[in-house]
Amino acid sequence: MIPGYDEVRYKNIINLLKQMPKITAPLNFESDLMRRINSGNFNENYKVKWWDKLFLPSRLIPAAAFALSIVTVFYFLNFNSIEPENPFLTKPKIRETVAQTSNKQIFPAQTPEYTEASVNGSFRINKEGLNFLQIRLNAAEKAKINKLKEEIKAYFKRKQ
């Protein structure tokens, strides 16, 4: 091959480079290679797996510091927050407004009455402090309920 102009111009440097000794592979190169191929462990030497990188001290320390700072911030924020109410310790709020519908009127609690047991067998409840609703019945409804009461009483008397 006839050398070109550049080959002649840089003849000395080309000769120096050509005279450099040839570097050879290590003696166990092929055995190492075949061992890696046969074991299927292709990235054993050259590449580090990402999960190995994750646990390097250079990455683990900043990550741990970040996590610690987050925990600290949440700890202090928690102290400043309003404590939630314990539903077992607070008194129920008493309704003051009274809603009214067509024939069913809702009343606040009546004056307290307390008796242990009435003579005719019915029980009265102490209504003090309670907040329950009472429905006003008309005469026909009251009569119907009274009739039902009489029937129940008669039933129990028959049983006795």
């Binding site: 570097i23 592979a25 290590p26 190169f29 190492d32 290679l33 890696r36 191929i37 292709f42 030497n45 050259y46």
Partner: peptide, 11 residues
């Protein structure tokens, strides 16, 4: 490093 790279090339 060069031995590692050549091994990687062969793989």
């Amino acid at each position: 490093t060069c031995a590692d790279i050549v091994q990687e090339t062969m793989i």
